[in-house]
């Protein structure tokens, strides 16, 4: 079976030949498109390391069939920063030491970007913690992660207001 997957990946229109229907979005990114920033921690939707934005929403790439992403927009960690200009979430993760080994970090950051876009957590740390609970961190960087998400969100809000003004 050969199909062509047309989708937008990190802002670029891509046509990818899919020779095997079993390929997940995660394995497509990692093994065929050399986008290895997205990590595989469990491959079963239980750890969040593979979190990407699919049509603007955070999902587990390991449980997403690549073929079902036809016409979709996918944003991965590689597409988040503009050159060396970090996204505020990335910068805040560094400042608050929101990681140690770094393996869950791309997933944490994409999840945080998704959480902020969802706009349900507000500035309540407890809601941020709940909203980030789909991303396991075995090193235990949760305190820094929560602080980073709150700070980045505040900064993004200030930016948005600045642009509106």
């Amino acid at each position: 079976m050969n199909s062509t997957l047309s989708f937008t990946l990190n802002g670029m229109r891509r046509e990818v030949a899919i020779d095997d229907p079993r390929i997940t979005l995660l394995d497509l990114l990692r093994e065929r498109l050399d986008l290895t920033g997205t990590k595989k921690g469990c491959d079963r939707g239980q750890c969040g390391a593979c979190t990407v934005l699919l049509n603007g929403r955070r999902v587990n790439a390991c449980l997403t069939l690549a073929l079902s992403c036809d016409d979709a927009e996918v944003l991965t960690i590689e597409g988040l920063s503009e050159g060396d200009h970090l996204h505020p979430v990335q910068a805040a993760f560094i400042e608050h030491d929101g990681f140690q080994c770094g393996f869950c970090t791309p997933g944490q950051i994409m999840s945080a970007v998704g959480l902020i876009q969802e706009g349900q957590a507000g500035d309540d740390p407890e809601r941020v913690r709940e909203g980030m609970s789909g991303n396991l961190c075995r090193c235990g960087a949760y305190a820094g992660i929560t602080a980073a998400v709150l700070e980045a969100q505040a900064q993004l809000h200030r930016q948005t207001q600045g642009e509106a003004a």
């Binding site: 999902v59 587990n60 999840s111 998704g114 789909g134």
Partner: peptide
């Protein structure tokens, strides 16, 4: 239920 990622999907 589940996580935000799973609920989104």
């Amino acid at each position: 239920g589940a996580s935000a990622q799973l609920r989104n999907a």
